[in-house]
Design a protein around this nucleic acid. Structure first.
Lengths: 356, 356
DNA sequence: CGATTTTTGGCAAACGTTTGCTAAACGAGC
DNA sequence: GCTCGTTTAGCAAACGTTTGCCAAAAATCG
């Protein structure tokens, strides 16, 4: 005795729409309409159907639906290689706000991690071209692209977050990295500081380029020569921020003319830098003022409390989602290519007026 | 002139398996077999088919496949309400290791956030019962359950991480919260400390229960009365760790007989506690030793460097995935109900011998 | 009560795969 | 040339929905 021709597996498959129809005593098409289109069916039968569905614990099969309508309702977020930062909760905060906004609109969030390997790129492209996802939020500067297929041609709406990719035609939601650092530097200048030390992220990285430019702009605006800004770092990635700060402290010690103000491109760098610098006997803010980027809450509890530029992760996430859903819904709403949400300098004791 | 009866939408839908078959000059069923079953088709035609697929940029439609075979290849991770912790990178580290392990096995990670609202529960159950996901990793103490449907009955393999839910029949992967705190406390006792201050997480929370019990065990083992352990906290959630630490510092100041050793249930609490305590003039570790839980890297750069119990997030994630995939694959491999991976105490300056 | 509108039922096709089956094509060995 | 074994073609059903269509039923109204 053998199974019927086509026998999938004897899995627990749950009640079907047909079962609901039978129980409610209506046609299967009516059930479908009742569950999807609110209006197309009489209120009374709709209630009957709802009751039947609830009684059976019916849940529509997402794949069957997705296949038929040709759309999924999951959004993919592409995270850069390393999710790990020392102290600032970039990823959790971003995920939290994005997920919340998506949930409210009936979407689900899928995670993809874009490493340097072709395998992870292929995986992402399979998701994009295979109809699994409906839209993409990307936190990486590189669009996945491998043998012919490119995320750009998947026919999916894409929104870039944290990095401005509007030049590449990708709508973006970012913060004002450059201005924020420029203003913070100007603040330092206003406090009398004239020699600066810049602790850099990976060379060529968008954030580092912008923030460095911001610092230089502030000097220029104040008529201070550009070489008043010493540089450290550039070789390590942000997730190695603590190490960058340590190296920066060593670099700093070797300088002849000591700067009096430090601008770090992440809180991690500032924290380890401060720790090492204090061990050499220098005092903050007495000898050296420090400001950094990201706005990690822990900065408040450092010794001394650290000034930092707080990124509006929550708001950026919400706007990125709104923008993506607009694009999915084909709403004609007009967006500027790159939406900028301002960061906010939080002044704490680590920044103080220069005393000669 | 009107569309054909059933006209979905004119979307960019990409090449189909039929297109590949045509280009390769073979039957569609052969293409399907060539792409799935490695062996069932002649090597030469397989190469021809691969070439055709590559040339067209063909990607199989995941939903059609999933519908037909009745299985998806995405795994859902259920995160507790708040993903945000002050300083320890719990979520990113867990996500990173889980995602990596899943990717290597061809699975994709989907995120679900379990809030207190019924809506988020419903959403999760829809994913589980709707065939979208193939397995679940849960970091929350509560299994989603709403009007009749419960995640426990979805017929899906579930693995709990961080919390031991093996009593509820959910296979678990955890660290040894209790022992780790017991050992750290014993270490304090060995250093001569006799009065302790425990900064607690939310009352009744698994981690808090375990860790508190661990501290008490150490006292008992050393013959120290249980009331040598003063308590603070219990009202706020872990994501408000900084606030807990602040309140604890205030509580501490009110004690008559000052403890000399502090055990905090998260690094956040320890950091803000230390910050506030130092403002009152007390010195660490001179007057007070401190140890906390989680192993945030930033602890190394605090003043003084903080002792902390480092959780093996990476390893827990890998094992949780291995275990889940075993369950999915129906592998008969035997697991103990609850796998325990040991945490590691990292001794730093914040812990020092008691000096009267 | 008859005419008109609203709501359902029933049917069937479609979404893009997978898979079992039979028969045909092909190559090799006798 | 014949047989045998391997490989492929071709067909068709199935996965569980959605949706257009038309006719039937029910409700509404004058």
């Amino acid at each position: 005795m053998k199974n019927n021709k086509d026998m999938p597996i004897e899995e627990h498959s749950g009640p079907l729409m047909a079962d609901v129809a039978r129980l409610a005593g209506v046609a299967i098409s009516t059930v479908s309409r009742a569950l999807a289109n609110p209006g197309r069916v009489n209120e009374k039968t709709r209630a009957k159907i709802d009751a039947a569905a609830k009684q059976l614990g019916y849940t529509p099969n997402a794949m069957a639906r997705g296949l038929r309508v040709g759309k999924s309702s999951t959004v993919m977020i592409i995270l850069p290689g390393s999710l790990y930062y020392g102290v600032s909760q970039v990823i959790p905060q971003v995920l939290q706000s994005i997920n919340k906004a998506l949930l409210q609109n009936g979407y689900t969030l899928m995670i993809a991690n874009l490493g340097r390997d072709a395998e992870s790129e292929r995986h992402i492209l399979d998701l994009a071209f295979g109809g699994t996802v409906r839209g993409v939020i990307i936190l990486s500067s590189k669009l996945p692209e491998v043998d012919g297929r490119s995320l750009a041609n998947a026919g999916l709406p894409i929104v870039s977050m944290l990095l401005d990719m509007s030049d590449a035609g990708v709508p973006s939601v970012v913060t004002n990295d450059r201005e924020a650092v420029r203003d913070a530097t100007a603040e330092m200048i206003g406090m009398g500081h004239r020699r600066f030390f810049y602790i850099a992220g990976p060379r060529g990285n968008y954030h580092d380029v912008e923030r460095h430019a911001g610092a230089l702009e502030a000097l220029r605006d104040a008529g201070i020569p550009q070489d008043a800004l010493s540089l450290s770092g550039g070789d390590l990635d942000y997730h190695e921020g603590f190490e960058i700060g340590i190296q920066a402290a060593a670099d700093f010690a070797r300088l002849e003319e000591r700067p009096t103000a430090v601008i770090a491109t992440s809180d991690d760098m500032a924290i380890s830098f401060v720790s090492r610098i204090q061990q050499t006997g220098l005092r903050i803010p007495g000898d050296l003022s420090v400001v950094s980027f990201d706005g990690a809450p822990v900065c408040e509890f450092c010794f001394p409390p650290l000034s930092t530029i707080e990124q509006p992760f929550e708001e950026m996430g919400e706007i990125a989602v709104a923008r993506l859903l607009d694009a999915i819904g084909q709403e004609g709403r007009e967006w500027e290519p790159c939406v900028v949400i301002r960061s906010k300098l939080i002044l704490r004791e680590s920044m103080a007026p220069f005393k000669s």
